[in-house]
């Protein structure tokens, strides 16, 4: 299992999701992607993306304008 730490801090929509998908393309089922961003859209956008793609949203955190989204890759074919 690989953990991908993605730093998208300072980017704006659609930067964080573009970075997430770049990591996802390299990942395999069971891998973890941790996406850090400052764009406030990253949490709803990541939730929607996980819902659409059937990957698992493990959790989200917010701290003073910084956001962290953890996703377990479960839907790679």
């Amino acid at each position: 299992m690989t953990t991908y730490n993605i730093d998208s801090k300072g980017t704006a929509c659609p930067g964080p999701i573009t970075d997430l998908i770049r990591a996802y393309r390299k990942a395999s089922n069971g891998d973890i992607i941790i996406l850090q961003a400052t764009d406030p859209g990253v949490i709803p956008d990541s939730k929607a993306w996980c819902g659409m793609t059937k990957n698992e949203l493990v959790g989200t955190k917010e701290n003073k304008g910084e956001y962290e989204v953890t996703i377990k890759v479960t839907a790679k074919k």
Partner: peptide, 10 residues
Amino acid sequence: GVLTQTGANL
């Protein structure tokens, strides 16, 4: 640019 990039992402 934003909508095109997002559509491609999805």
